[in-house]
Design a protein around this nucleic acid. Structure first.
Lengths: 195, 195, 195, 195
DNA sequence: CATGAATGAGGCTTCATTCAT
DNA sequence: AATGAATGAAGCCTCATTCAT
């Protein structure tokens, strides 16, 4: 944001292209072109094409982690915490779609150093969710369901909706989607509990 | 299954490697080696490396489509249909993890011919879910939430749990996970509706 | 000679170019072009550009070693052996000028894997010379000079003359040069011993 | 020597690296680093990387030329001149091993501008030797051998011994090597003239 | 003068695809 | 049908050189 040196330009360009074409289908040439720098300049700031990806994931996701935890730590009630997490994750994914799409893409591979990063990041995030849920269950605020499954499910529903939905074109629609997810996650789709 | 000719061997090998290394990081050589055929033989059955991927996704997903729709069409109740879908999708993803991981990986890109396939397949599947949910709402069996969001969320939670959970080591655990998801999706995590 | 497959063509082409331009100034493209094969074909036979050089030195020099030792082992007299060595080395260097020029070039570097080969080869050859000289001294056939220095000097004078002389255009001239070297090495340039 | 400005530092650094890694394997970066100047500074003093090499060879060898000719011109006897040349060349090569190794390396190529310099320098030096030898023969001081061959041989034996011998660790050993070469060159290795 | 960030030409290597056997 | 040697387009990366500070 502030520092608009070449390094930032390269990261921004790389993010955009990686997230649409995937890491392997992107050439350093393309990144340099979109960043409006020479091909060689990329190598002034990054040792390797993969390093660009790693830095992108590292920096971006450290940011999401901090961002969300900040919003949560003030809340004491587990239910409230979960509601806040759902809300913030949805918005973070939506506001950083290219980065999060990239994360989703690369997290499924296994061999590259990059994938393990994406994988690790997702794991630690889900673990955090699980802990919040566990506390909610202990506190008698939430139903005693398997917390790991619920945490993973929460992550999955929010991220897919955020990345997939094409019609979230304005704040109003985003809020509508959020409300739907909150209802779904906390109350379910069934009309009556007896269902 | 029955036909163990080279074509199958190639598809099986490709699936395994694609799903772990990604399409772009896999060489035709590797596929041929794992399939124990000559490199040229791959081109006897497929015009292109990408065609291997496309056939893989096409066949595999057509299969999932048929598989799930078969289980549903006998059911008339929308809630029951959704329960069956959740159950079958979970199991199908779990039983075909490499293929579904591949689908998840490649579906996030946009430019490649392959991605559009993965994307298209996922879209049509979610659309099907949405229709079931819509009918359930019309029939007064489900809460009147935004059906597209709910459909996407359902897809997201099930697929992520199926692909992500490492501890589903036996049928019993799989059933436990399924039950958790069913509870979550239909009743939510909140203890009381008033929550 | 006999096997004129691509591998030989590549080695022959590489030798010619390496020996004139040096290893580092030669492109794989050039080698392929002179060998009349595709650029990629070079990599069917050699893992690396450097491997081409190594194979070249390895094969070529193993050949020289065998060639010369064969001519010597029948001789018993040390003086005769040395005369034969001088003769054969001169001729071998002369007949394989490109290869030996390459050896001389690359043997002076130190870092590359290739150089160490060239270096090693030269060392073992000189050691062999030294042993012959030592025996000659012990047998009272040669003057008791420092054998290592003499061996190195012999190698140096023969190889430089062979590679450097431009006017060795026919067998007669080659024999004249050889005679000169034999006289020089065995009798020296001084007119009288008392000099 | 006296002028220790950046130019000297660059030449010194370049010499050391060129002589071990070869010209083509050395980067301007490395030279600048070892000379403790900025990369750009190299271009303040030299137009081109190759110019560094050329200057190095030019200056260094002009120096050797002057050095040796100075020692010779006072001597009238051809034999004495040759003895002095052998002595001085051996010492000069030994004292300036990196430079002379560089000369030997680069003199074997032909295409580069640099090589032709190295080549030219060596040629003119050998020509000088040849003239001395010719005069010695005319004066009846030396045997009437082919002077070009003898000159080349002398150059070859001295330079190889100087660059190759690893055990010349002190002045005494150097003198011993010199004595051996003098004996060898003037009297030969044979015990009796009748050999 | 001194510097090093910026650049792009060029090299090595990989790999999808072809084709003769 | 099956093969793998052959190919060249294309990508990553290096590095000599320039130039603004």
């Amino acid at each position: 944001m502030v520092t608009d040196c070449k390094r930032e330009r390269i990261l921004t360009a790389a993010l955009e292209i990686f997230s649409t074409q995937g890491f392997a289908n992107t050439t350093v040439q393309e990144i340099a072109a979109k960043a409006k720098v020479g091909k060689g300049t990329v190598y002034t700031y990054f040792a390797t094409k993969e390093d660009v990806l790693i830095d992108l994931l590292d920096e971006g996701l450290a940011h999401m982690g901090k961002h969300i935890e900040e919003r949560i730590k003030l809340l004491t009630d587990s239910g409230m915490k979960l509601r806040a997490i759902l809300r913030e994750q949805l918005r973070y994914f939506h506001n950083n779609r290219p980065l999060m799409r990239l994360l989703s893409r690369e997290a499924w591979g296994q061999e590259l150093g990059s994938s393990s990063i994406a994988h690790r990041i997702r794991s630690s995030y889900i673990k955090m969710l699980q802990e919040v849920i566990d506390k909610g269950i202990e506190a008698g605020e939430l139903r005693a369901l398997d917390s790991e499954t619920v945490a993973t499910a929460l992550y999955g529903m929010v991220s897919l909706v955020a990345l997939y939905a094409k019609d979230i074109t304005c704040e109003a629609k985003l809020e509508h989607v959020e409300m739907t997810l909150q209802e779904l996650f906390f109350q379910g789709v069934a009309l009556s509990p007896a269902f």
